[in-house]
Structures are given as structure tokens and as C-alpha cells.
Design a binder for these strands. Structure first.
Lengths: 226, 226
DNA sequence: CTCTGTGAAGGGATTCACAGCG
DNA sequence: CGCTGTGAATCCCTTCACAGAG
């Protein structure tokens, strides 16, 4: 298969840059979108770049550069129209936001993710869950049907799902990824602390909880040269 | 207090760079450490930079640069000694790895985090959990005692805890952060989809699940210009 | 005036390329 | 030979600074 390791050696992580838009920009656009939505719900209609910067932890210049990427224009007096900017971000994201995803591994983390996305946003949805525990398969978790892992390929293709979330123990992560790849998935969100070996055309993002905590511990402990 | 928003405007995110060591490097060192440990458990004793790169998704040059930061040296024939490199990373991290942390919010995500860190690593530990639900306080979850949030300041100071994990609903995130700051915490790992307004000297890292999924959806959908 | 839009400058991080060593 | 260590080059991202518009 596509085992890297020794063989590939000096390979670059050609992490799908696609339209020359960096991951960082996409991340911030997603963040902006949520903030804009909140502002809209709060009854506002406009926002300035420096305000959006304040709410997102960036700078005004960066906000303007990001917005430039999606080709939206604000007005020089009123700043940006909340509704207009949201619509523009949505157009930029295209159909991607409305795609459903699936998850494998219904442990504590899997359940947490299911409830997270069931509660928030009606748009981002997990439409199928998988596990190999017979106790779980067939049940409904946070409104999401749980199937046996064996059914993943069929369901993924039937529902035309292109993103899979991995929330299984580390030992099972690579085989789960392999299964997803065979099932035609093209993006993986991996919560297992294992680097996944996948073909070039698969986009993989890893959320490493241990690493995150270790980082905070480091910077908290070594703060201000203390 | 330290409300930013409109007031501060053009403020930079002076995210504690401390000893000139970037967050990225710390993240990778944490990742390397885990890989090295696995290799050691697998009975190996040495590793080459290109192997470590393969297992971590980076390049050999980058691995060598990272290792340079911590001042470790390998040998030109055998590569790096697993035990030696692990020891060197540990020395670099100093006492930070052995610090305990606390968590607020024992919902699905909180439980998932508690079990994640209870299972893996005996070193990274969450030593106290907090919630405002009387049903939960007083109980033991994944071996961790759950207290009422009001007790946080006392316990944080008693046990000298410097890192807090936020796993509460978004509405409660800022007040939880404020409470942690008052309790003397210096690092926060935030899972709530809210940008936290905190004093300069606090290190904050945010894990935004919605953003992560949205990013994968975007790159999966718009892959290879498709 | 204050705000956006934008080319250009600046800073970091990654990669290159090669000296040196076993 | 193949590997590490390392300065230099490159690339990418962020920030600056100012023109232009209201």
C-alpha cells in the first residue's frame, strides 16, 4: 500500500493547499463566521476590522487580508456588513460546509463529539457513527444511528460522505484510516495520537489532546522566564 | 478588568514566546517524545532523523533543526539514541510535564478528557474536576474527584495547580477563565468555541472542534481542484 | 477624520546544501 | 557512502504604511 516510513524518506507534507489558500486562513474564516453570526444574533448589522480582530484574537490588518482572500469588500464608513460577509464566507466555503461526515469510535470522545455537533450548528452534522462493540451498534446516540464498522464502506458510498472522524484507540487508528480510504473518503479528522499514513490525495488533520495539554503546561510553567 | 475588544484594538497576540522557542517546536517535541517512547517499547534503541520524520509527518531537516533547539547531539553513524533523546526532551521540558492540571465542566467532553489522560501517560494528570451540577460534585469520575466550582480557588492554590482546562458550554467559558485567573492559574486549554479575554501573562491555547471539522470539510471537498 | 484595500516590508519557519565525521 | 550539524536561502505569513473613499 502506501506505507511511507523508511521508503519515502524525504517526502514533503504536501498537505493539500489546493487553491493557494492556506489552512490558517480557512481556520480563521471559520472562526470569523461564528463571531459574525453571534454579532448578527445580538442584533448588530455591521462590524469593523478592528472589532473582529478583538473578538478573534488577531490584528485588524490580518482580518482585512483574510477578507481580501474571499473577495469581499466592506464600506469605508460602516465597516463590513455582517450578513454580507457571512454570505461571502459561505460562498467561499461552497458546498463543503453542508457535507455530512461520519465517525468511528463511540467511546467517551466519540460521544462528546456527537453531542458537540448535535447541539451546535444545524449545518455541520455527523450522519453516521460506527463501532465494533455489538452493545453499541444498532442504538441511537445523540440522535445518530450507530452501525458496525463493517458497514462503513456501504454507508459512506450510499450517503456520499467524504469526511471521516477517527475517535478510536491508537492501536486501531491506522486500520480505521485505511478502511476510510478504501471507502472513498477524502478527508480525515484524527483524534488518535498516531500519525496516519495515507495516500497523497487524502487531507488529514490531527487533533492531539496530549500534545495540546503538554504545550500549555510548558508555556504556563516557563512563563515570563519563570 | 482586562477587557480587550474595542479598547485595545491594535493589540498583538503576544502569545508568550518565552525562551524564543516557538509553539510549533514544542508541539513537535511532544510528538517526537511519544514516538521515541513507542520505538523504545518496541525494542529499538536508535533512530535516524528521516525515520522520525516519517513517523511524525515532517522532514528530516526539520527534525534535525528541532533537535538542535534542545541541544542534543546524535552520532553520525547510529543516528539518535532513543533513551538519550527522550531524556534530553524531558530535561528541556523541565518540571512542566509533571505538573497536575484541573478541569472545569464534566459534560461529555470533560469525561472524555478525564478518561483520555487517565488511560494514557501516568505523567500528565488531571488532579481535580469541577462542575456546578450538584449531581456530579462529590463523585469520582475516571478516578478524579469532582468538586463544586466554588472550591476551585482553594484547591488550585492548595495543590499549586497552574493549568486549567475549560470544557464548559460557551456561555460559561469567559467567567470560568476569569475564575481560573483569579485562582492563580497561568495556562488555559480552552475547548469552548469562544475567544477568551485574559491578561497578558496567561498562556491560552484553544482547541476548536467546529473549526477543525470545517477545515477538513473544506480541504476534502476542494481537493485537487475538484 | 476614520475606515478599507493593498503593495511592500519584515519576521519566522522550513528547506536546502554542504562540511565534517565515522 | 550515509548520516548529523549548520549556516544560508527560500518560502510563507504577518504587519506596516499609506492611498483612496466617504
Amino acid at each position: 500500500m502506501y506505507r511511507k516510513e523508511k521508503a519515502v524518506m524525504e517526502e514533503k507534507k504536501t498537505q493539500k493547499k489546493q487553491k493557494n489558500v492556506s489552512q490558517k486562513v480557512i481556520e480563521r474564516l471559520s472562526l470569523y463566521r461564528r463571531i459574525l453570526q453571534e454579532q448578527l444574533s445580538a442584533g448588530n448589522s455591521n462590524i469593523f476590522s478592528h472589532q473582529l480582530a478583538g473578538y478573534s484574537g488577531g490584528t485588524a490588518a490580518q482580518v482585512r487580508q483574510d477578507i481580501r482572500v474571499i473577495g469581499y469588500s466592506g464600506s469605508t464608513n460602516g465597516g463590513y456588513s455582517l450578513a454580507g460577509l457571512i454570505r461571502s464566507i459561505d460562498e467561499f466555503f461552497g458546498a463543503s460546509r453542508s457535507q455530512a461526515s461520519l465517525i468511528v469510535g463511540i467511546g467517551n470522545l466519540g460521544k462528546a463529539l456527537l453531542s458537540h455537533f448535535a447541539l451546535r450548528s444545524l449545518e455541520l452534522t455527523i450522519s453516521a457513527a460506527f463501532d465494533n462493540d455489538p452493545e453499541k451498534t444498532g442504538t441511537l446516540i445523540e440522535g445518530c444511528r450507530c452501525f458496525d464498522v463493517e458497514q462503513l464502506p456501504n454507508i459512506a458510498r450510499e450517503q456520499n460522505i467524504s469526511v471521516g472522524i477517527i475517535a478510536v484507540p491508537p492501536e486501531a487508528a491506522q486500520e480505521t484510516a485505511d478502511l476510510m480510504v478504501r471507502a472513498g473518503i477524502s478527508g480525515i479528522l484524527n483524534f488518535a495520537p498516531v500519525y496516519l499514513d495515507t495516500p497523497e490525495h487524502i487531507f488529514v488533520d490531527m487533533v492531539d489532546l496530549t500534545m495540546s495539554l503538554e504545550k500549555v503546561l510548558y508555556f504556563a510553567y516557563n512563563r515570563d522566564g519563570g
